[in-house]
C-alpha cells in the first residue's frame, strides 16, 4: 500500500468535510478497497473511514412501509435484521462474500463501488430503491452508470438506501467459482404496479434491467412467462469462467428460478 492519512469521523457532516481534501477517499468496510490498495492500484492521500458514523448504520421501516438501510450497515446486519421485512434482500445479503467479509462489508461501499458482479446492485435496481446521499436522493435507475461507475460525485456519501418492499421477490446467484461473486445473478421483485428484473454479473455495462422479462412477468408472474425470451449475448461478459452465450443462457435460467422461488 502507498502511505495515506487515516481519519475516522463520527458524523456524516465531518466525513463530507474530510472527503473535501485533495485525493481523499471514503472507506466503507474495505473488503474491496483494501485489496485494491495492497496491489497499489489506488493511491489516496487520505482514507476517510465511515465505520464510526452511527447515523449511517442500521435497518428500519419508514413511514411509507419501505425498508431503510444505513449506508454503513454490514451485510451480516442486513441478513439478520431485514429477514422479517424483506426476506429476499436478507437472503441476498447472507450470501455476499463469506461470513468474515459480511461482518465488515457495507451496502454503501458495495453500491459506491458498483462491481459488475456484485449482488447488491441487483437488489437495489430490482427493487427500484432510492439511494440517499448526504446531498440528494438518487433513483436506482439513475444511479448505476456502467461497470464501477455511479452517479455519485466526489465526496458524496451514501447515507442510506430505501427499498420499497415487494409482494414477492427472490435472488438467484450462480457462483463464479473462484471469487464467489455472481457469475450471473438475477433479482426478481413483484410489486403491485409491475415486476422488476435486475441482472448482475452478466453484462459488460454492469447491472441492468431485463425489460422484456419485466413486461412478460408483469403480465403473468410464472416461470414459463419468460421461457421464450432470449438475452442477446453480444454485450455479455465472456471470460475464463463462462462465455457470453453461457451468461446469456444463465440469465434466462436464473430468472425462471427466481420467479419460481418467489412464488
Amino acid at each position: 500500500m502507498y502511505s495515506f492519512e487515516f481519519e475516522k469521523p463520527s458524523t456524516v457532516a465531518e466525513a463530507v468535510a474530510a472527503l473535501g481534501a485533495e485525493e481523499a477517499q471514503a472507506l466503507g468496510g474495505g473488503q474491496t478497497l483494501i485489496p485494491t490498495l495492497k496491489q497499489r492500484l489506488a493511491a489516496p492521500a487520505k482514507l476517510v473511514s465511515l465505520s464510526g458514523i452511527a447515523e449511517m448504520k442500521g435497518v428500519c421501516v419508514e413511514d411509507d412501509g419501505s425498508l431503510a438501510i444505513g449506508g454503513g450497515t454490514t451485510h451480516a446486519t442486513v441478513a439478520r435484521e431485514a429477514a422479517d421485512k424483506y426476506p429476499a434482500l436478507a437472503e441476498l445479503a447472507s450470501h455476499i462474500g463469506d461470513p468474515a467479509v459480511r461482518n465488515r462489508g457495507t451496502i454503501g461501499g458495495s453500491l459506491a463501488n458498483n462491481d459488475p458482479s456484485a449482488c447488491y446492485p441487483a437488489a437495489v435496481l430490482g427493487s427500484g430503491a432510492t439511494i440517499r446521499t448526504n446531498a440528494r436522493d438518487i433513483a436506482a435507475d439513475d444511479f448505476f452508470q456502467g461497470m464501477f461507475t455511479t452517479a455519485l460525485s466526489d465526496a458524496e456519501i451514501i447515507t442510506s438506501v430505501r427499498f420499497p418492499v415487494p409482494q414477492a421477490a427472490n435472488y438467484q446467484k450462480f457462483l463464479q467459482p473462484a471469487s464467489r461473486f455472481a457469475l450471473v445473478g438475477v433479482f426478481v421483485a413483484r410489486y403491485a404496479d409491475g415486476v422488476r428484473v435486475a441482472v448482475t454479473g452478466a453484462s459488460e455495462d454492469g447491472v441492468f434491467r431485463w425489460g422484456e422479462a419485466e413486461q412478460a412477468l408483469s403480465r403473468e408472474f410464472r416461470p414459463d412467462a419468460v421461457m421464450g425470451l432470449r438475452i442477446n449475448p453480444m454485450n455479455m461478459i465472456g471470460d475464463l469462467h463462462g462465455s457470453k452465450e453461457y451468461r446469456a443462457h444463465l440469465v434466462g435460467v436464473l430468472t425462471r428460478r427466481a420467479v419460481a422461488a418467489a412464488g
Binding site: A178, S179, L240, H241
Partner: peptide, 16 residues
Amino acid sequence: LLSASYMDYAMPRADD
C-alpha cells in the same frame, strides 16, 4: 496470466 489470484483461480472450498 488471467488466473492470477483467488479471484480467478478457483480453489476448492468446503462446499465444493
